[in-house]
Measured scan of single mutants.
Amino acid sequence: SKGEELFTGVVPILVELDGDVNGHKFSVSGEGEGDATYGKLTLKFICTTGKLPVPWPTLVTTLSYGVQCFSRYPDHMKQHDFFKSAMPEGYVQERTIFFKDDGNYKTRAEVKFEGDTLVNRIELKGIDFKEDGNILGHKLEYNYNSHNVYIMADKQKNGIKVNFKIRHNIEDGSVQLADHYQQNTPIGDGPVLLPDNHYLSTQSALSKDPNEKRDHMVLLEFVTAAGITHGMDELYK
């Protein structure tokens, strides 16, 4: 796709999030870079409003799984890469995230190029959380598991539907599940690639910047598309 050509090198990323969870309002600002050749993201996020009212790991899918245009699609799968094909005009990404036995996040993001920078601007609203639950009670460990993110075409809306389940580790050794339902639709009216069913395999590492006084998260992530085999004719070339 034409959009794919915008991702040949390292691309700067800007992320802006405004959130409200159970009436606790907050903002997060992030910057870093993405390299789609390797499916690599390096980002640093800062809570610009003081202390973040929710655990950082609960925002990873909104912040970095928010820029799935940096996923590495192998050559034989490039015609299934909706995310890059929607660029530079970008796409709207909407999600509902259900935390098992707790509340939910609803998010709406616009992901697009502004100049040479890929920008992810998000509004997040969280409701029905227990004040002493795993999320508002800050009981999650500061780490992140690997996940597969399942993608299918949504021809009606000229976009994709995505769903997956995140496993958050809790300090007591148990797990907090979070079910994600995602819809992506193009902002522009140019042609986009509608994929066959496949998935993104994601690995994320969270860390801290020892010199950063503000509440923050440093993230390194690798994302690769998989799940579609080479056609038989490919094998015999």
Rank of each mutant, 00 (worst) to 15 (best):
V21A: 02
N158H: 04
K40R: 10
M77T: 05
K51M: 10
Q79H: 13
V92A: 06
V21I: 10
N197Y: 09
K40E: 04
Y73F: 03
S201C: 14
S201N: 12
T61S: 14
D102E: 14
D20N: 11
D209N: 03
N148D: 10
L124R: 00
N197H: 13
A205G: 04
D18N: 14
H180P: 01
E5K: 13
I228N: 08
N104I: 15
T202I: 15
N22K: 03
A205D: 06
S146R: 12
T49A: 04
K40M: 11
F45Y: 14
I97V: 10
H76P: 04
K100N: 06
P74T: 15
T62A: 06
S207N: 06
G227R: 14
N197T: 05
F83Y: 14
N148I: 06
G137E: 07
D132V: 06
L17P: 00
T229S: 13
I228T: 11
I151T: 02
E110A: 07
I127S: 12
N197I: 09
T62S: 14
G159S: 09
D35E: 09
M77L: 09
E171G: 12
D215N: 02
D18G: 08
K106E: 07
A36P: 10
K44T: 13
D116N: 15
G173D: 10
E110G: 04
Y150C: 07
R167G: 15
H168P: 00
F113I: 04
A36T: 10
F82S: 01
R167S: 05
N163Y: 12
T37A: 12
I187V: 14
E16G: 04
K25R: 09
S146G: 08
V162A: 15
V192A: 11
K208T: 11
K40T: 04
E16D: 09
Y144N: 10
K84E: 01
H80Q: 10
Y150H: 08
E94A: 09
L43M: 15
L194V: 05
F164C: 15
F70I: 06
I187L: 14
A205S: 05
P191T: 09
C69G: 03
E234K: 07
D116E: 11
C69S: 04
F99L: 03
V15A: 02
Q182L: 00
K161E: 10
N169Y: 08
V111L: 11
Q79R: 13
F222I: 08
W56R: 00
K106M: 08
